[in-house]
Amino acid sequence: MSMRRALPLLHVAGAVLLTIAVAGPARAQSTGIAACDDFLQKYDTCVTSKLPEAQRATYKAQLDQTRKIWVDMAKNPSAKSTMEGTCKQTMDAIKASLQSFGCSF
């Protein structure tokens, strides 16, 4: 391929990469409950910034599963009323286990 033909492709590829970098990762789905969303954000920050690379996938999978369960629970009005307490209890239980990695909640 000649340089003249390759140059437009390089511009398109650069524009796509710039768009991805500026947009950032997709925003995680909210539960609609402040205590739960706060915990999930802090947990995610801890996992991505403090945990060793070899352990991140396991913790990230747990985070994703917890988020999905909580988002589904929040759709049920009777479950939603108890979720704030559940999320606070979960944060208290998990934060102790993550302190050894230097995470603070």
Rank of each mutant, 00 (worst) to 15 (best):
S2P: 06
M3H: 14
R5G: 07
L7M: 08
L7A: 07
L7R: 02
P8Y: 02
P8C: 01
L9P: 04
L9F: 13
L9R: 10
L10Q: 05
L10T: 02
H11F: 15
H11M: 13
V12D: 05
V12L: 15
V12K: 08
A13T: 03
A13S: 11
G14Y: 00
G14N: 01
A15Y: 04
A15P: 01
V16Q: 08
L17K: 04
L17Q: 08
L17C: 10
L18Y: 04
T19S: 13
I20P: 09
I20K: 14
I20S: 14
I20C: 15
V22D: 05
A23W: 13
A23Y: 12
G24A: 06
G24V: 07
R27Y: 03
R27A: 13
A28H: 07
S30K: 09
S30P: 00
G32V: 12
G32I: 10
A34R: 13
A35P: 00
A35E: 11
C36K: 01
C36F: 04
C36G: 04
D37A: 13
D38Q: 15
D38S: 11
F39I: 01
L40K: 08
Q41L: 15
Q41P: 13
K42H: 14
Y43V: 01
Y43N: 03
Y43R: 01
D44W: 04
T48N: 14
T48E: 10
T48Q: 13
S49M: 03
S49I: 05
K50G: 02
K50V: 07
K50E: 07
L51W: 00
L51K: 02
P52G: 12
P52Y: 09
P52R: 14
E53M: 11
E53R: 14
E53W: 13
E53H: 11
A54S: 15
A54W: 06
A57D: 08
Y59Q: 09
Y59D: 04
Y59S: 09
K60V: 14
K60E: 12
K60T: 14
K60F: 07
A61Y: 01
Q62P: 01
L63K: 03
D64A: 06
Q65E: 04
Q65Y: 02
R67L: 04
W70P: 00
V71I: 13
M73G: 11
A74E: 00
A74R: 01
K75P: 00
K75T: 06
N76A: 10
N76W: 00
N76V: 10
P77G: 06
S78N: 13
A79Y: 08
K80D: 07
S81H: 05
S81M: 06
S81Q: 07
M83Y: 07
M83E: 07
M83D: 07
E84A: 12
E84S: 11
E84H: 03
G85S: 11
C87K: 00
K88N: 10
Q89I: 01
T90N: 02
T90H: 05
M91K: 15
D92R: 05
D92S: 08
A93V: 03
A93F: 02
I94C: 10
I94V: 15
K95W: 06
A96N: 12
A96T: 14
S97M: 12
S97W: 06
L98C: 07
L98T: 02
Q99G: 11
S100T: 13
S100R: 15
F101R: 04
F101I: 09
C103W: 04
S104I: 07
S104H: 11
